[in-house]
Simulated assay, not measured.
Amino acid sequence: MTEYSDLQDRLKTRLADLLERAEVIEDDLRHPLDADSSEQAVDLADDEALEGVDDVLRAEIVQIRYALQRIENGTYGTCAKCGKDIARARLEARPIATRCIDCAD
């Protein structure tokens, strides 16, 4: 067990949730449009919103996978910019953080 095993568990749980939600969205997006043209307009608007949500989910999935990789290779908790330790409180608040609070944009 690493010193970040609790955060690793949280990240894995969040990843599983996001993957499940993304799959539901993708299933919704695969459905054919309704034959009624007025319904098609609504469906297209809904699909556009779903695509935006899916993009956000996918970006977070990438960040979580990157954080889990950093835990595995021992670089998690080290600022990618300055090399100093990232405060535990920051990691608990934002487990995907790659920079310390001083280097955060």
Results as ranks from 00 to 15, higher is better:
42 V>Y: 15
24 V>P: 02
59 A>L: 10
15 L>Q: 09
20 E>L: 12
63 Q>C: 14
94 R>N: 15
49 A>G: 13
92 E>Y: 00
32 P>M: 02
95 P>C: 09
74 G>H: 04
31 H>Q: 13
70 R>D: 00
19 L>Y: 05
89 A>Q: 06
5 S>Q: 03
89 A>I: 08
47 D>Q: 14
47 D>A: 11
80 A>Q: 12
9 D>Q: 12
99 R>M: 08
103 C>E: 02
3 E>T: 00
104 A>M: 06
5 S>Y: 02
4 Y>M: 09
24 V>W: 12
91 L>P: 00
51 E>H: 12
70 R>Q: 06
11 L>P: 03
11 L>R: 02
6 D>N: 11
84 K>H: 13
22 A>V: 03
64 I>A: 13
97 A>R: 01
53 V>Y: 09
29 L>D: 04
105 D>A: 06
91 L>E: 08
96 I>D: 15
73 N>R: 04
10 R>Q: 13
81 K>T: 07
76 Y>L: 00
50 L>W: 05
15 L>K: 08
84 K>Y: 08
35 A>N: 14
50 L>M: 10
105 D>P: 15
93 A>D: 06
72 E>W: 02
77 G>F: 08
44 L>S: 02
42 V>T: 14
86 I>M: 09
25 I>N: 14
8 Q>D: 11
17 D>S: 12
48 E>T: 09
71 I>A: 02
79 C>Y: 01
46 D>F: 07
46 D>E: 15
81 K>C: 08
26 E>G: 04
23 E>K: 06
53 V>I: 14
53 V>M: 11
101 I>W: 08
101 I>M: 11
15 L>A: 07
86 I>D: 03
87 A>T: 01
82 C>E: 15
76 Y>Q: 00
86 I>H: 04
35 A>P: 13
48 E>C: 11
14 R>C: 07
59 A>P: 02
94 R>I: 15
98 T>E: 14
62 V>M: 11
93 A>C: 03
17 D>W: 06
24 V>L: 11
52 G>N: 07
38 S>R: 04
27 D>N: 12
62 V>L: 06
60 E>V: 05
45 A>F: 10
65 R>A: 12
34 D>T: 05
70 R>V: 01
98 T>L: 09
92 E>S: 13
26 E>P: 05
94 R>Q: 14
8 Q>V: 00
99 R>I: 03
31 H>F: 07
4 Y>V: 00
95 P>Q: 02
50 L>H: 09
86 I>G: 00
69 Q>G: 14
87 A>N: 08
22 A>W: 02
70 R>N: 01
21 R>I: 00
50 L>E: 11
59 A>I: 05
95 P>T: 00
